[in-house]
Write a protein that binds this DNA or RNA. Structure first.
Lengths: 111, 111
DNA sequence: TTGACACATTCCTATATGGGAATATATTGG
DNA sequence: CCAATATATTCCCATATAGGAATGTGTCAA
């Protein structure tokens, strides 16, 4: 079996750095494909293909306005990723605490 | 160009559902490979290969204890994902607010 | 040293890209 | 209807899996 399709879920879709770049850009506001192309400095077909993947997993929504297609982020689709990572938050906070404790032990070593 | 390597970063590593399963399992406590194999119901070579990927991006750490290798999560490596998703949190909260407002408008329609 | 247990690695294959190039489709103005 | 603009899709190819099967490596007990 090969790797799961990029359109299988949001986790796979955002694994590609270019697609995260696009989402970051769209986070500010709705944009046309040409605006994305200019901002990302990618070829137009590449942008369209990435947008198709993002749309496939619901990470963006599109609407036509004249000749242009306007895309915007659907932030709710990112929420599952946020929640999954949150389950580890307690663990890394604990890790950081131990790092801090160790640093303080070095600042005030036993005489 | 093909897809980025699964070992290129944490985003690519956790795109695979089985690897998230393993991380979820290790979140509870350090485990040996056999324990993971039993819990995940996967073939041992598959588990070893997934662990290698996870270790490659620093998501897990390993230490030998006798014949066993004990793996544990390095939660700090998940933090970048959490922080990236957090940048969209304001957006989805706003989305939810609008959904709620619309619902309330329907509960009390104009007469 | 030898056998057995616990893992890791290699080999093979079907599958899914992502980018570049070329082409198709949709919409608007004249 | 035609040309121009804005996107989308298709074709081609090099690359990277993930799983199954087989095999290699490391460690311990006797």
């Amino acid at each position: 079996m090969a790797r799961a399709a990029t359109t299988s879920d949001a986790f796979n879709a955002v694994a590609e750095p270019r697609r995260r770049d696009i989402l970051n850009y769209l986070a500010m506001q709705e944009r046309s494909v040409s605006e994305i192309v200019d901002a990302m400095q990618m070829e137009q077909p590449s942008v369209s293909k990435h947008l198709k993947v993002l749309k496939g997993v619901g990470l963006v929504e599109a609407r036509r306005e004249g000749r242009q297609m306007l895309y915007k982020v659907n932030a709710l689709a990112i929420r599952p990723l946020h929640e999954w990572t949150s389950t580890f938050e307690r663990l890394w906070k604990h890790q950081l605490l131990r790092v801090k404790e160790r640093a303080e032990a070095n600042d005030a070593p036993k005489q």
